[in-house]
């Protein structure tokens, strides 16, 4: 069952026994994941656990060494046009001479004419996307003058402007304060009415109030609840508001630290 209670539809993202390694370093091993239409899936796990790598595989920026990935029934490269992506670290220098409006317009590339300038419909869509993330007043600002929270809204607008079916976010609130974090998540919860959302976070305590399901990744995807779980269930496992993840070895590892070794690459089950 998906969270809307409608009959089970074809999954929008299907990851089937995927393995990936950077050279000799295995990052993902036999990972299975399936995301249903309309879900808001939180993908949690310690740093260096392979969360970002899994996202990059789903986006088709990396190729798996084994296994199969389908996005909207197609190989990732073909489905890219209908996926919006908000990266963890913006891949651009902050002093780049460009306005917020121009950055958001880039999300329209690949739609319509290949050559020439943006069309009126593109500009209307950019204005619309900025309004949706409550950043319409930033349109004329230089990208370098934005605060962390404002930049995150703009990157969200850039991902939304192509009217995607799936929204993928990698630690969207890593660089902003908690009040802003709440605002961004309220925004995502509203967007979830029309979009499937896959969100990576190391902060399960916070996202539990918003997501419809949580998957934990640390090299292998250990827990993968098929039923929707609520905030209480997650709090019961992780402790309410506690920003840490307990590992089986009994060695507490702060979720923000990179102290996980291969030996510790195992996660607490979140069985519900």
């Amino acid at each position: 069952m998906n969270p809307n209670g409608s009959p089970v539809a074809a999954p929008v993202i299907e990851v089937d026994r995927v393995c990936f390694a950077y050279g000799p370093v295995s990052v993902l091993q036999d990972v299975d994941l399936s995301v249903q239409p309309g879900e808001f899936l939180g993908l949690v796990g310690p740093n260096a656990g392979g969360k970002s790598t899994l996202l990059r595989l789903i986006l088709g920026l990396l190729q798996p060494q084994a296994g199969r990935i389908r996005v909207l029934g197609q190989i990732p490269r073909r489905a890219r046009g209908r996926v919006g992506y908000v990266p963890q670290h913006p891949g651009f220098p902050r002093d780049f001479p460009i306005s917020v409006q121009e950055v958001v317009l880039m999300g329209r590339l690949g739609l319509g004419m290949a050559l020439g300038s943006y069309r009126r419909t593109d500009r209307a869509a950019a204005a619309c996307a900025l309004a949706e993330v409550e950043a319409a007043d930033l349109a004329g600002r230089q990208i370098g003058t934005l605060s962390g929270g404002q930049l995150q809204r703009v990157l969200l607008a850039r991902a939304l402007v192509s009217d995607p079916a799936i929204l993928i976010l990698d630690e969207p609130t890593a660089n902003i304060d908690q009040r802003m974090e709440g605002e961004i998540f309220d925004l995502l919860a509203a967007l979830n009415a029309r979009l499937t959302i896959l969100l990576v976070s190391h902060d399960i305590g916070f996202i539990s109030g918003y997501v419809s399901r949580v998957a934990c990744l640390n090299r292998t995807l250990l827990c993968h609840a098929t039923e929707a779980i609520d905030a209480a269930a997650i709090s019961a496992v992780y402790g309410s508001g506690v920003r840490r993840i307990q590992h089986r070895q009994g060695r507490p590892t702060r979720s923000g630290a990179t102290g996980t070794t291969d030996a510790a690459r195992e996660m607490t089950d979140v069985s519900v």
Partner: peptide, 8 residues
């Protein structure tokens, strides 16, 4: 990276 994702 973003350009690549938009099919450029």
């Amino acid at each position: 990276e973003f350009a690549r994702l938009r099919g450029v």
